[in-house]
Design a protein around this nucleic acid. Structure first.
Lengths: 214, 214
DNA sequence: AACGGAAACAATCAAGCGTTCTTTTTTATT
DNA sequence: AATAAAAAAGAACGCTTGATTGTTTCCGTT
């Protein structure tokens, strides 16, 4: 056999992409072999090289497209909103919904950055930094106008994004709580976290019996 | 050559452990080869098998010990405290400090669970569940006594733990903020998040221009 | 109907993998 | 000093890996 009946380059390319996401999500980039990937799509491993330069580039393509998509869509959602509180709520809602519907992509983009070579990694990290910058700017503006009590916007940005992204680790579409409810809960946590009184003070020493010894 | 001068089993075992953590952290479990690990310790790859049964068991030993340690030390820190607020602050402080001083272990334990075979994974997940249960119980008790406004303790547990654990992704000991300051910030976020008003209501529809389309 | 390019197969390569086994050297014990 | 045990070397194993190449078949266009 050689070219198979009904074969179509565009369709195969998309199938490889999807299978790649699935397998990298499940086994990790290094652990996924190209023969495994080829079998998933119904090809021989050598045929994959019609669709990417090498294994590394497959990963890079997937991750970069994801990060670019995330950034563009977040900016679009925030576009036109000026009130920091509205922007924060929008950001939280967007981030959560995006992550709940693309868990595999998100997981890969966050976890396999280390598997990218230096050049590719730098580009992806740049995109991520721009994305984080969206939230950081919101927090700075809210702090400036006094709506938020945030002394360290950078740290709080990391904290909130970690909190939201963590939903990828356990969310299941058929779980007891639907997406809207989860967005409510997380939005409440984020809003309370940046508006609450505790972060406005330098708190007294914690009532610890003893410190963590770890 | 065979046995090298000054060689000592206990010391080598510890060196292998440490090098294993370092390499798995840096490259991932699958990507770390035993020849790489052996070279790091100054051995031949075959000699490693005096110290573990196989590669899988090395990972399991590292992860299980970490999770067990985390659980035991958290329980010790919380021991004797009854006030939910004090317990929450203690938990947050413990978790953060532990994660700031053992970033590699934590990262491995969280990320390489999927690389464990079924039996080992089940045991590790059980330990993790017990650890999460500590916080969940704190939240439930606080909600019962009315100090906390938490409707979904399970979800909020995941949210807080993700937020805290995320510090492993960026914390550097030589950064501008010291551990105490970071504990303050994160504790403020957590406390405000569970005591603030927003989570007490079913919030109105978000002021979104449009929903995330991801 | 014929042709050129697209699509996939099939075979191959060197390198590296985890693992096992035997041998050699060092250390500790008597 | 002799001996047993510990520690590591080193060679070998069967396999799989990512990657390359040449060939064959199908398809869309003219």
């Amino acid at each position: 056999m050689a070219r198979t009946i009904g074969s179509n380059g565009a369709r195969t390319a998309e199938a490889i992409r999807q299978a790649g996401v699935k397998l990298i999500y499940r086994h990790g980039y290094e652990a996924m072999s190209l023969r495994q990937l080829a079998a998933e799509v119904g090809l021989q491993s050598g045929s994959l090289y019609k669709y990417f330069e090498n294994k590394q580039n497959l990963l890079f393509d997937i991750v970069r497209e994801h990060m670019g998509d995330l950034l563009v869509k977040a900016e679009a959602d925030l576009d036109g909103l000026t009130d920091p509180m509205a922007r924060l709520r929008t950001f939280v809602g967007f981030h959560l919904r995006y992550h709940m519907t693309r868990m595999a992509h998100v997981f890969i983009a966050n976890m396999e950055i280390r598997s990218l070579d230096e050049v590719h990694r730098a580009e992806v990290i740049g995109l991520r930094r721009r994305y984080e910058g969206l939230l950081e700017d919101i927090l700075r503006e809210g702090a400036r106008t006094g709506v938020f009590h945030v002394e360290e916007p950078r740290v709080v940005t990391y904290a909130i994004i970690s909190m939201l992204t963590g939903i990828c680790m356990w969310y299941r579409p058929d779980g007891p709580l639907d997406q809207d409810r989860l967005v409510e809960i997380y939005t409440g946590l984020a809003v309370d976290g940046v508006t609450g009184p505790a972060s406005a003070f330098a708190p007294a020493a914690q009532p610890l019996k003893r410190r963590a010894r770890g």
